Simulated scan of single mutants.
Amino acid sequence: MTDVIVGLDAGGTKLGVRVVSLDGSRIADVSLPAEDWSASPAGDAARWLVERIRRVVAPGDQVVAVGVGAQGCDTVEHCHELAHELTALGYRSAVVNDAALLVPAAGLETGIGVIAGTGSIAVGQDASGETLFTGGWGWVIGDEGGAPAIVREATIAALAARDDGLPDDGLLSGLQQAFGVDSAPSLARAVNDTPTPENWGPRAIAVFAAADAGSALATAVIDRAAEHLAALVGQLVRRGAVGDSVVAAGSVIANQPRLLAAFSARVAAAHPSLGVVLLEDAPVAGGVELARRLAASGTHGTSAD
């Protein structure tokens, strides 16, 4: 029997699970589907996570501590509630929002984490250690910089340009091709008839392709997304977030250099003391670090910090 710690990263589409022995040896590192993940109610969420922990941890191994980054845990109170439910099921846990995994995953004690993937959110801590959130309001009304929101804004821009009588600069045709339709009305139907992250998000690559091919409309959409992400950083700084690094992660900003460059430039202009780093390891590494700290503390409490 081996004593292990477990890191979890529960996002919008996948759950990262990393199992590590107490000496740091990696035992398992897997990604599971998470389309049905919900952080509420906390009891159901805890049972959902435990069922998947048991899939990955070898029979007979003892889980000493669990570190969880959970999309949807957007308050300190919610994080504590989920940690309490996991502990009640026998898994001593520290729980944070998934964006809060980025700073420990990068090996830092303090800083601001920014995720741009299925959604967008930024998380930091003030000097007292209180967790600060900004953004993360959902792809229907916000989450600019996330994949579904980029597609939403690009579709609005392309259709508005058409209504203005402007020629297609490549964005409209790119979106039509991405959705498998051949007209603007058909594009509107394809977007509106299935308003889900699964339908919209994967098409974001078409927006970046259009920008790379010279579309001014697509470039403007991406620049506005970068501006929004940088504004999240500014909001946290004004609220007292500490640290000198902004750690960026998420499927969009990690895989689209254009967005990362635009975001980095805006952060540098507004906050010269902050450096932007792209997370090199998976965010689940932050969950492992939280679990390691919890195991080392020898306490039986829960944490959202």
Rank of each mutant, 00 (worst) to 15 (best):
S120I: 00
T155S: 09
I53Q: 00
D143Y: 02
R162P: 05
H80K: 12
V50I: 02
G286Y: 01
P104R: 01
R18K: 15
A83M: 08
A42H: 05
R92V: 05
L278F: 05
D98T: 04
E130S: 15
H84R: 15
I253H: 01
L236R: 02
E130W: 12
Q235V: 14
V237P: 06
Q256M: 11
L278Y: 03
D98K: 03
L260K: 08
H228D: 09
G240S: 11
A265S: 11
A204H: 10
L278W: 02
Q62I: 05
G298R: 15
G12A: 05
L101E: 11
A94I: 06
A206D: 10
L187A: 01
G11T: 11
I5P: 00
L89Y: 10
G135Q: 02
G119I: 02
A149Y: 09
A295E: 11
A248Y: 07
H228A: 13
F263N: 00
H80M: 11
L82G: 00
G69I: 01
N255V: 02
A261Q: 14
P41V: 12
P197E: 10
F133V: 07
A262C: 11
T13G: 12
T2Y: 04
G72S: 06
G72Y: 01
A282R: 08
K14N: 12
A261E: 14
